[in-house]
């Protein structure tokens, strides 16, 4: 296997010393042909600069922790093959999140938003164990399956200009997860979630830029779920006012 020299321009930030982030270039990092950007970072950390900080865990696009801006695009660094990039690669922490240190971001806002949308089954009629399981057909499963594939990597938040400009916006992943439960045949919590999702900082800050779906490594298509939620909350808005007697 042949070797290739790559220059890594990494945005560094040391909260104890720096007043603002700065780029540091690691020159001629010896990389194997089949490496990803994460491998190159690991090489630097192991051999050149042990102070370089970044998050990673699984190295196989499952855990969702190694998201970074790679040449300006939100990407999982374990999925960013060096053969797809030039000889100089620019690596930055995910946009729209505060920088904790180097490539590590502060994700508290995202975690808090995830819990706000009640991302769990709220059964229509709670059943006791004796009454048996909640049955579902393959068709009903397929309806929402795509939206279960989110790995919480936050690339969509980093791609979404509305989240960057309006930090209160609940954002693509959290709203998609709400949609995943809303359209689950076993769930009856749509109205309860709408108290959060149908507000101005819910789906209505979304203007369908569509960038979230383009960068999503799991092909969850958050933009799609947000449009469907807008249609659903529009129907709900009119229904509640034109037919106040109808329940749902």
């Amino acid at each position: 296997m042949s070797e290739r020299k790559i220059n890594l321009e990494v945005l560094r930030y040391d909260p104890d010393k720096d007043s603002e982030p700065r780029f540091q270039t690691y020159k001629a990092v010896p990389c194997q042909d089949d490496w990803v950007v994460l491998d190159a970072l690991n090489y630097v950390k192991d051999n050149t600069d042990t102070t370089l900080s970044y998050r990673w865990s699984c190295h196989m696009a499952v855990c969702g922790s190694c998201g970074m801006m790679i040449d300006g695009e939100p990407t999982l660094s374990c999925k960013a093959f060096l053969k797809d990039y030039g000889d100089t690669i620019r690596v930055e922490p995910l946009y729209h999140f505060p920088i904790e240190r180097d490539l590590v971001t502060v994700i508290d806002d995202f975690v808090e938003k995830l819990t706000k949308v009640k991302p769990f089954l709220i059964p229509k009629q709670p059943k006791s164990i004796e009454e048996g399981e909640y049955l579902q057909t393959p068709k009903q499963l397929k309806k929402f399956k795509q939206y279960t594939l989110c790995i919480n990597c936050m690339l969509c938040y980093s791609a979404c200009p509305q989240y960057g400009l309006i930090p209160d916006f609940l954002g693509p992943a959290a709203l998609s997860l709400a949609h995943r439960y809303n359209i689950d045949s076993r769930d009856g919590g749509c109205q309860e979630r709408m108290k959060v999702t149908a507000t101005n900082i819910g789906v209505w800050e979304c203007s369908f830029v569509g960038a979230c779906s383009e960068v999503c490594p799991g092909h969850v298509d958050p933009a799609s779920s947000l449009q469907q939620m807008k249609i659903a909350s529009t129907v709900d808005w009119y229904k509640k006012r034109l037919m106040p007697w109808s329940k749902s």
Binding site: Y13, P15, D16, E100, L165, S207, V209
Partner: peptide, 29 residues
């Protein structure tokens, strides 16, 4: 000690950063 750094988004020019944002703005216009 924690001292997170927040990068500002240029309010008037953010869409010039990427082609997909320019295409989005063209669509809105």
């Amino acid at each position: 000690m924690r001292n997170p750094y927040t990068r500002e988004i240029p309010k008037y020019t953010w869409y010039l950063r990427q082609g997909r944002y320019v295409r989005y703005m063209a669509r809105e216009v």
